[in-house]
Design a protein around this nucleic acid. Structure first.
Length: 477
RNA sequence: GGUCCCAUCGUCUAGCGGUUAGGACGCUGGCCUCUCACGCCAGAAACACGGGUUCGAGUCCCGUUGGGAUCACCA
């Protein structure tokens, strides 16, 4: 059994989207699982639509997802000699022939066929009666077409879909090279996959209908087709193929929204593949356990909630130093200055990680730790910063000011003393303090908040809280 | 429309002839509790329909319905 070689072959006409990422993931994992090679090839033969920006975006997305390719990236535009050579081989064998039909007449025939509810197929106007090499026309533009068999059937023995049979009469003579001489997709893929020794083609099932033609090309080119595995498409909420209309679909958008590459990979791999009841997989496990055999046949709807849940899982289980490191770019993205020091950053992140589901959300929740001062939410202020609380705030402030060791244990002691002395519930004092310190009724544990804020900021905000109470005394009517 | 693919809770899925049809997300209720989360416990929620085959069908076959993909000098 020769070494397994898979490939991911995106066309650089836009960013790397979720569906493409999953295809890349499957190819990557399958190669790793088999101890084979994963090659990256950029299909940029459409010069009109391919851009260097898109190439860059795809490469960066792959790197971010840690889908490391072993060979490439190869660019089809740099491999024109190969296609020319193969084209001539086909031509001289009579497996391809020039076609002088103009796009206009082709289009007109297509319209007519559609109007009559006939299948819009090439009618074979330029196809030689016999399989023979014909001289190329001179002085007029022409395309090169593949001479496909007109009878029989082509069978795709697909690893996920099973046996699929196509009647050859359904397949018309596809264009191999455009009138400007440039080769087209179906031809380039086959030449490249043969040349690169690809053994397994794992791709979206939107390519299933191209497969019989590609198999015929393999044979005309003297090669046996590789193993095909057509994985189901990812659908949007409306059950339509996932597209921009469904919101964020680019891999980089997920990075920017504060998702971890591990979470995205873990989510994506479970869309169409499963391993019993297991939901969480680390990178190593994926390489061990992933197999095409366990890929399902039906398409899957993209579910942002589950992705978010997975992201929260990775957020909670990340080693703290790593998490703090990863938060940093999101901090500066929001315009916050460098945190005072590492230890403090880690402490802060640690208080928030259980409550946030993404890095962006974590940074948003951290505003009262990072901003100079805090805006007191109106509703929270009216409910908790009331006259009865003034005294409590002052008492807490005084005790905190006198605290010898300003740490969580000491802070807890302060609150313990206050409620014991006054015989009140902790909530009675914790909520006003929380509102004064964070501006809202929701935050991590109050001792943690105070500890992270530090003595100076805490006392300042407590004082501000007291002033808020004075400024919002109930009116006397 | 032709061709091809698909069909278990709302969603992702387990199931590979005999199960109280399992898990996960989300949802609801409860517990924990200084708030919110986390966590824990409980609950509602599915085999599209109709024929066969079989002692027995979510599982096999056929049809219907529904959904999707594809029909370029795009990839």
């Amino acid at each position: 059994m020769p070494q397994v070689r898979t490939r991911f072959a995106p066309s650089p006409t836009g960013y790397l989207h979720i569906g493409g990422a999953r295809t890349a993931l499957f190819n990557y994992l399958y190669a790793r699982h088999c101890g084979g090679k994963f090659v990256l090839r950029i299909e940029d033969t459409d010069r009109q639509r391919s851009t260097p920006e898109a190439i860059d975006a795809i490469l960066r997305s792959m790197e971010w997802l840690q889908l490391e390719w072993d060979e490439g990236p190869f660019y089809q535009t740099e491999r024109m000699d190969l296609y020319q050579e193969r084209l001539h081989a086909l031509l001289s064998a009579g497996d391809a022939y020039p076609c002088v039909c103009t796009p206009e007449t082709l289009d007109a025939k297509r319209q007519a066929a559609m109007a009559e509810k006939r299948k819009p197929m090439y009618d074979g106007t330029c196809r030689p009666v016999e399989r023979e090499a014909v001289p190329l026309p001179e002085g007029i533009p022409f395309t090169i077409r593949f001479r496909s068999p007109e009878s029989g059937a082509t069978v795709v023995d697909d690893k996920v879909k099973g046996r699929v049979e196509f009647d050859n009469r359904e397949l018309d003579d596809l264009i191999l090279a455009r009138s400007d001489g440039s080769p087209t997709y179906n031809f380039c893929v086959v030449c490249d996959d043969i040349d690169m020794g690809i053994t397994h083609i794992v791709r979206g099932d939107d390519h299933l209908s191209n497969t019989p033609r590609q198999m015929q090309l393999y044979r005309a080119l003297g090669s046996e087709p590789p193993v095909f595995a057509h994985v189901p498409l990812i659908l949007g909420e409306d059950k339509k193929r996932l597209s921009k209309r469904h919101g964020a679909t680019s891999v980089m958008a997920y990075r920017d929204m504060g998702y971890f590459p591990e979470a995205l990979n873990n989510y994506l791999v479970r869309l169409g593949w499963s391993h019993g009841d297991q939901e969480i997989f680390d990178a190593q496990e994926l390489m061990e356990k992933f197999d095409i055999d366990a890929v399902g046949k039906s398409s899957a709807v993209f579910n942002p909630e589950k992705l978010l849940w997975l992201n929260a899982h990775y957020l909670k289980s990340r080693p703290l130093p790593q998490l703090a490191e990863e938060v940093t770019p999101y901090l500066s993205a929001k315009g916050y200055a460098e945190p005072r020091d590492r230890a403090w950053l880690e402490k802060m992140v640690d208080t928030l990680r259980e409550r946030a589901k993404s890095l962006v959300e974590l940074v948003d929740m951290a505003h009262y730790f990072l901003a100079e001062s805090v805006d007191i939410d109106d509703k929270a202020g009216r409910k908790h910063l009331v006259p009865e609380a003034k005294n409590l705030l002052q008492e807490v402030s005084r005790k905190l000011g006198n605290l010898a060791d300003f740490n969580e244990a000491g802070i807890e002691q302060v609150f313990g003393d206050v409620i014991a002395e006054r015989g009140i519930k902790l909530g009675k004092v914790a909520q006003p303090v929380r509102v004064a310190l964070t501006g809202s009724t929701v935050s991590p544990g109050i001792y943690e908040v105070i500890d992270v804020l530090g003595r100076d900021v805490t006392l300042t905000r407590l004082a501000t809280g007291v002033r808020y109470i004075d400024a919002h005394l109930p009116t006397q009517d």
